[in-house]
Design a protein around this nucleic acid. Sequence first.
DNA 1: CTAGGGTTATTT
DNA 2: AAATAACCCTAG
Length: 215
Amino acid sequence: MEQQAIQIYRQPLEEPEMFWAPIEQAEQGLYGFLGDLQLSIASGSPRGLQIENILQLLELEGPQDQTNLNDWLSGDLHPSPLLDTNAHYQTKCRRSGRRGTRKRRTSPWNPMFFESRVSREYTRRKNNSRWTAKEVEILVQGVSKFGVGRWALLKQQFFKTSIRTSVNLKDKWRNLLKAYQGNSQKTTQLYLEPSLVEQIRKLAAKQPYPNKRHT
DNA sequence: CTAGGGTTATTT
DNA sequence: AAATAACCCTAG
């Protein structure tokens, strides 16, 4: 419940007129990188783009010819010039009017170009691979053998050569509980054999986790 | 090292 | 837009 409140804060509501969308979802007629630039300059935010960065960006992705120029000036979508793991387009960016504090997500843009706006600078995520049913099966096996909380041991014995770290195992278990323990009716992406789900529920009942200390 | 809060990424 | 999944940070 508490986490939900935070998530609401973190997600686009902070700046309703702007959000990030994957390429496939990008729509025509919305402002992109140029609009973002304009806003940064206009707002004069000390945490916004620095002039060197702007020049650098223009050089990388600036208009090349008349067509391109029109494209830019028209405010069409532009990909982030700073190619990263995921290319995102910024859609919907209000051009004028009062604006709140900007909250830029780090990922689509190289964090180097922006000052950190939070005390804690996040490092880029390493990988993002989904768990397979087989992996979950092994995890459940391990938990039933060693008990909940022996993640390092579990890693060593069952996931020795896996990319999953002990912390990943712990996190996955937490997610499994969220998915299969409560009254979560959402469709889970990963299909697990009913027997496996049953096993998870049984383990969860026996060894509740996370351990809520008090309300 | 683990628990748990937090953030980012992907899917619905 | 919001839920879910994966990954990060760090006190104790």
